[in-house]
Design a protein around this nucleic acid. Sequence first.
DNA 1: GTTGCGATGTATCGGCCCGATACATCGGTG
DNA 2: CACCGATGTATCGGGCCGATACATCGCAAC
Lengths: 210, 210
Amino acid sequence: MLELAILGLLQETPMHGYELRKELATKLGTIRAAISYGTLYPTLKRLQTVGWITETAADQTIVPPMTSKRGRVVYKITAEGKERFADLLAQAGPETYDDAGFGVHFAFFARTDRATRLRILEGRRRRIEERREGLRDVLSRANNRLDAYTLELQRHGLEAYEREVRWLEELITNERSGRTPSGAADSRDLPADLAGDASPETPRPHQDRP
Amino acid sequence: MLELAILGLLQETPMHGYELRKELATKLGTIRAAISYGTLYPTLKRLQTVGWITETAADQTIVPPMTSKRGRVVYKITAEGKERFADLLAQAGPETYDDAGFGVHFAFFARTDRATRLRILEGRRRRIEERREGLRDVLSRANNRLDAYTLELQRHGLEAYEREVRWLEELITNERSGRTPSGAADSRDLPADLAGDASPETPRPHQDRP
DNA sequence: GTTGCGATGTATCGGCCCGATACATCGGTG
DNA sequence: CACCGATGTATCGGGCCGATACATCGCAAC
């Protein structure tokens, strides 16, 4: 799942690990607080060995600091990596509907075609509905087996599920009626490769120091 | 964190692994969907080696099935385990305030004294407030750097944080005014072992459905 | 001016936890 | 009696986290 997020960000622009972590944090903020380096670097290494990203020496002309020794490492997505990213975005397995998986997929919906978006939203809704029903069963059946605090916890969780289902329903309706959340361009018309140079009103996905 | 939950359940009654998993699921339903056996059994083993629980052969007189071969294993909490459970419940570290940690602690609030409950609720509130502020910063500062879907994801996450803070605030107010969610007995007076049967009356802290 | 501190930056290690898998028994129903 | 779903115990590979270590840069305080 993290692999997908990394490929997605590197598709926008090459970065080094530290930047990647920050971008990941703002992009997925609500989904995963902040990715650990103990996760990030091994994952980057893994992505290199399978050839989806490459490691390039720091671009000295643009970014002077860290001149010697253990210099910065800039990661860049490969052509094969772009293919894999597209594949991963399009194909939705069961892990696409859990909290982390759904969040990452959703964060890249601007790069996903409408059919896939709908499929994922509906899969997610189904997943949450299942959890909601399970919780309702517990609450109705085991009402006197649980103490008040535990019940309150369940009640609060149930409310959160109900709210999420409503949210998903709204998104699904919007998708069906052709509207994206607030007018983002539909990805069907995108060049499939907008790599480094950002779209007009999407200024610098990331601002490097002047 | 899982250790705490296991000790808590075994304090109510001895169980074998399969039961434990089910009880865990209903008790923590909203927190962690269902604990994996790949987590449960190693954890039980670990708890045995440190001496907080013991493994006893299945009680044949009561539970006849699984008569031979790889029989059921019933786990029971030890005296030291009870002490550790009390310690873990009372002392709140940083991990007490993350999603999993808070959920487990909350699920055993009926066994926690009021001062500790307040401390934990306030710590959790602070934690969520921090996340909320971070998210607000992202949303206000990077409004034009993110696409509509990502923004929608953040907005939804922000709303969830705001809702949780309100929920916590309500719980804190209730605690301060001496009311537990619905009148569960304060744990100071409990016999430390109330096993299976629950509180007689379980009204709603928060009234909702008819 | 140098000292020290906070932000930037790369990397590893132990450990928790998950999903997949394997194996075995028990209580039914066809 | 054959099968099947629920019950039950257990391991393995791998993802991810928190703690930790180490190095550089920019800057402000002394």
